[in-house]
Computed example of a mutant assay.
Amino acid sequence: MTSIPPIKTYNFLPCKYGSELLLDIGRIETLENYVLDSTLHQLSFYEIIFIKEGSGTFLLDENKISISPRTIIFTSPGQIRSWEIEQEVKGYTLFFEKDFLHLFFSDELFLYRFQYFHQYSHPAEMLIDETSFGKCLELLYEIEWEFEQLQNDSNHLIRSLLYQLLIVLNRYYAGVYNVQRDTYIHPDFYRFRSLLERRFLQDKTVEAYTKMLNVSPGFLNKICRQFSGLSAQQMIHQKLISEIKRQLYQNKSAKEICYEFGFSDPSNFNRFFKKLTNTTPHQYQKKI
C-alpha cells in the first residue's frame, strides 16, 4: 500500500494582534499558510469560507465540494481538507476558536445550535443567491473594518457581528436544505450531538446515549428526527461511517480500523460498512 505523508495541523494564532483575540478574517487571495493548501491538512479551529470568484475543488473529509462564486463552505476542527484550484480563488475566510463565542455565552455547546457545523448528515456547503451573498459580504466588510482599526472594545463588536452572521447563515442553510431554521434546538439534541462527537468509539447504541442524557429512546428519536431528519441510530451510524471514511482516506488498513472502532472482527466491520455505503472498505479505499 502506498504511504502518504502525515496530515499537518494548523493551529490558531491568538496573539497575532498583540492581545489575545480568538477570531480572524482575511481575503483568500492575499493570505498564505493554510489557505489554498493543496496537500492534506486539518485545522484546530472553525472556518467559514466565502467564495467570490474562482473555480476548482475543495476536499473536505471524503466529500468533494465544487468551488464557484457565491459558495459558502463550513469546516469544523479536525476535518481533513485540501484545495485543488483551477481558476484563481478570491473571497473571504473567517476563522475562530470555539472559546471566542462559548465563553461569552457561557455555553460550551453553543456552536452545536447551528446546522452547518459538525455536519455529517447534510452537506457542509451551500450556494446562495446574489442578494443573500451580498448580505454576508456586508457583515464581513464590517468585521474587516473593525480589525483595521482595533480598539479596546473591538472584540465585543466583532463578536456581535459574528453572532449576527452565524444566525443569518443558519437561516440560509435551513432554506437551502429544508431543515430546522430556528437556532433554538432542544438542549437534549445538541447534548446528544456533542456526546456523539466525543464518544462514538465507545458508545454505538441508542441505549448508551439515552442513559447519559436520562431520556427515553422514543424521545431521543423524536428530537433527532425533528432537528436532523434522522433517527438517533442513523445519526450514530452516519458519524461512524464518516470517521471510518476519514481513516480509510489516511490509508489505514481496514483491519486496523476495525479493531480501533471496536468491531469484533473484520467480517462484521466489512458488512457494516457495505450496508451503509454499498461498497466494501477495500473498494472505497481503492476508489479514493
Score class of each variant (00 low, 15 high):
104 F>I: 06
257 I>R: 03
174 A>G: 13
58 F>C: 02
158 I>K: 04
236 I>Q: 04
218 G>W: 02
286 K>C: 00
191 R>L: 12
44 S>L: 01
268 N>V: 00
169 L>S: 01
48 I>P: 02
207 E>T: 11
283 Q>T: 09
177 Y>H: 10
235 M>A: 12
96 F>E: 08
7 I>T: 15
91 G>S: 06
131 T>S: 15
206 V>W: 07
66 S>G: 13
225 R>L: 15
124 A>S: 15
238 Q>F: 14
92 Y>R: 03
114 F>M: 07
107 D>T: 07
271 R>M: 11
233 Q>C: 03
245 K>D: 09
29 E>H: 03
183 T>M: 05
271 R>N: 14
188 D>F: 14
284 Y>W: 14
255 K>C: 10
202 Q>N: 10
22 L>P: 02
8 K>Y: 12
241 I>Q: 09
268 N>L: 08
175 G>M: 07
283 Q>E: 14
256 E>D: 15
88 E>P: 04
163 Y>C: 05
214 N>I: 10
129 D>K: 09
162 L>A: 05
232 A>M: 08
125 E>C: 11
285 Q>D: 09
1 M>G: 15
195 L>G: 07
7 I>A: 06
56 G>T: 05
77 P>D: 06
192 F>V: 01
152 N>Q: 13
240 L>N: 07
86 E>R: 13
261 F>W: 09
207 E>R: 13
149 Q>R: 14
56 G>Y: 03
104 F>M: 07
147 F>E: 01
257 I>V: 04
50 F>N: 02
248 L>W: 09
109 L>Q: 13
201 L>A: 04
65 I>H: 02
54 G>I: 02
46 Y>C: 00
254 A>P: 15
124 A>T: 06
90 K>L: 00
81 R>W: 01
256 E>T: 10
204 K>G: 12
155 N>G: 01
273 F>Q: 00
137 L>W: 01
113 R>T: 12
